[in-house]
Design a protein around this nucleic acid. Structure first.
Lengths: 199, 199
DNA sequence: ACCTGAACACCGTTCAAGT
DNA sequence: ACCTGAACACCGTTCAAGT
């Protein structure tokens, strides 16, 4: 089973979720297709286990002696990096095949930082939600960005911009739309908002 | 062509992107499968046109007399609602089949609000990115939430929670993880951060 | 117990042909 | 010009059988 999941992760990294078919996976492991159904009941179940397999490696740093906002930024950065390392994980999360428990250690860690910082549980849940959504939304967009040729010019990507003066201004400077610093920009914004709320 | 796209949107709303096959679409319109390839070169191209078709209805309110932060919240709310109305659009955006120009009027409108508010173009682009990512991330998560039975209990969703005390506390109160107010919470946080930055 | 090929009901798309 | 059925190379999965 371990070997099957490793092979699946390899295929996922290589060509994304679209390239990961049961038949190709069987070939990669050197088994008949139907052998896979001895390990798993459906493809969906296999993808779920694959997600858990890949996310188990995400370990939040143990730095509860640091200020809570730094802990938060570092923990979310860890998640962000996991998504960058295996972009296919994002596809699995989107496809909703990753079962709940696979992410519990991350969820618990983030909530813990917020609660220990002094937020009541209601606010902590709201904050947790907006932070995770932000990291997740960024991962999805990042995936898009990487799939586009960097030689692509603004005009080629957006079409004629004469009717959209503001966009034209922006596209000339940032054909990539999301600069590498955008992740940190929004994250700092969110954490700053939380810090004010705590006082 | 119009009729084909309307039928496609109907299928998309009914069963999501997975139910939208060329063969089923042809049946829905009452044509042979291959007739569709007279309108469009590939399925991907058809999905792209479908995305543009659905997003053309998103019109940002014309309220440039209002404070910029209110304009911003309202415009992003408009986008948020479009995603709620046709959750399938989110699948199209994720699948990266929607071509650039389809969203230009929204991009331009949002950038305009920020620039007129007084942000320099660099900051405006960063802010734009983080705001849009947030709305988008929320839409993806919302889609997940809706696909889960509401009778589902926290324990059933997350598995045993004894090792995750903070999560247990949160899950007991919010088995849904993202309450309806989470969208507004994070958005206000982001806008508040921007307001401070402007001064 | 562990593995598997043949077969079924689906896909998107090419090709050649029908009106 | 507009439409289409047959065919091809793929899917995930059922079923019955092989060691």
């Amino acid at each position: 089973m371990e070997e099957v999941l490793d092979a699946a992760l390899r295929l996922l990294d290589r060509g994304g979720i679209d390239e990961l078919s049961m038949r190709r996976l069987a070939d990669e492991v050197g088994l008949g297709v139907m052998t896979l159904y001895g390990y798993v009941r459906t493809k969906e179940e296999l993808l779920g286990e694959l997600g858990a397999h890949a996310l188990a490696h995400v370990v939040l740093p143990d730095d509860s002696d640091q200020p809570w906002d730094e802990q938060l930024v570092r923990a979310l950065g860890e998640l962000h990096e996991a998504f960058s390392r295996h972009p296919g994980i994002v596809d699995l999360l989107i496809a909703q095949v990753v079962t709940g428990p696979a992410l519990n250690h991350v969820r618990n860690g983030l909530l813990g930082i917020l609660v220990r910082a002094g937020f009541d549980i209601d606010t902590a849940v709201e904050a947790f939600g907006s932070l995770v959504l932000y990291v997740f939304g960024f991962a999805v967009a990042e995936r898009t960005r990487q799939s586009i040729e960097t030689t692509d010019l603004a005009e080629a990507r957006y079409g004629p911009l004469d009717d959209f003066p503001y966009l034209k201004l922006a596209a000339e400077r940032y054909p990539d739309r999301i600069s590498p610093s955008t992740f940190g920009f929004g994250l700092r914004q969110l954490v700053e908002g939380l810090r004010r709320q705590l006082r």
